[in-house]
Write a protein that binds this DNA or RNA. Structure first.
Lengths: 214, 214
DNA sequence: ACCTGAACACCGTTCAAGT
DNA sequence: ACCTGAACACCGTTCAAGT
């Protein structure tokens, strides 16, 4: 307390503390004052290292992006590699549920992120896609990952499956059937994601093999 | 000005004004004071009709949900009906880009929303799905729609396609190829969505016809 | 029944001081 | 070079008045 702080503060250190705060206490708990407090400093000090709160959100976004493991993209067979990459991507988002809304609206332009996407597209082209088809596939996979991580779907329905039974028989049947397959709360999300992944990658493989419906 | 207001205020009227404000001036412009101003009233008055700002966000969410046209779900052939429904769902979200982050994190439990999902699941079951498979398909479609509406993907890449050319050749090639197919700014999103939709519904149809890979 | 003004505790951000 | 206290304009929300 008596000693002055050494150089504890930096854009990266602030981003790490911000992500911890979001993980621990939720997105709305990320306050400049609360963040400074967690860093043993006084609010206004943060502005010596970052330009604005928005800047911090960008830094947190980059932090999450850096957590994604893209080594599976170099694996063979390429289909399994891409599936593993997509699952890992989704797992990172799911492990920071309070930060998901942040990721969803914030484009990442880091050199790392670009290299990652470059690798994905190169893998798809090597597998036989035209560059344009590779872009479409990558986009579809991205949509599936982000959409499933946001999980509005299961959040909306996993909860009270029996409540609206008589008025909505198909809904109740489906949810009960899905629940019978696996009763864990994220199971329907997981299975929806896996289904979509299988359809996209399976359909792509069929198309590349010339058996697609074109 | 001299006359007292008649009953202009209500939860619904407030929600409509809130959505207008979000559409016009962005999500962060939705302020209790600004919203009241748009309704010719003074901030605190809103609390006579709604419980909190969060309550307003729920109401806006319901408003968007009500815009979705689910009549295509009753059309034949069911495959085209579901595709049309998914496209309409996505179109509604895209027509309120400033409100998308709101929809993404907010589960809608309205009677209308439940009926909508019930219809979708009933359609899938009628087409031959087991209830569990119907739930997975509906989830995958939902993820694709929401993920593509959030459009992080294209927001991140459509912009500066030439800038990082040498370091990321596959990325640059894909974006340029996609751009050549259709240069409009949302084209890659649209094509990614359509590709995912085709893969999911095509794969489902094949699976139901017994030609799937199981 | 419902609009109002004033106030509350909070927020992001700035800036003149300090060291 | 960087932390600080105080201040700024703002925010969501409450509440005693008013009509």
């Amino acid at each position: 307390m008596g000693r002055p702080h050494q150089t504890l503060l930096s854009r990266t250190a602030i981003a790490h503390a911000a992500l911890e705060l979001i993980d621990d206490r939720g997105y709305e708990a990320l306050t400049m004052r609360a963040l400074a407090d967690r860093l043993g400093v006084r609010g206004a000090s943060l502005y010596n290292h970052i330009g604005s709160k928005d800047d911090i959100l960008d830094a947190v976004s980059e932090l999450l992006d850096a957590e994604i493991d893209h080594t599976p993209l170099h694996r063979e067979p390429w289909l399994d590699g891409i599936a593993a990459y997509a699952r890992g991507y989704r797992r990172v988002l799911q492990s920071h549920p309070n930060a998901i809304s942040l990721v969803a609206r914030r484009a990442v332009h880091t050199e790392d992120a670009l290299r990652e996407y470059d690798t994905l597209l190169a893998t798809l082209v090597r597998a036989g896609c035209t560059p344009a088809l590779a872009a479409e596939t990558a986009a579809a996979l991205d949509f599936l990952v982000i959409g499933s991580a946001l999980e509005t779907y299961a959040a909306g329905f996993t909860r009270p499956p029996a409540a609206y039974r008589p008025e909505h028989p198909a809904l109740a049947d489906s949810l009960e059937a899905a629940n019978r397959v696996d009763p864990s709360p994220t199971a329907l999300d997981d299975r929806g994601f896996e289904f979509g992944l299988r359809m996209i990658l399976g359909g792509l493989a069929a198309q590349l093999a010339g058996t697609g419906s074109g």
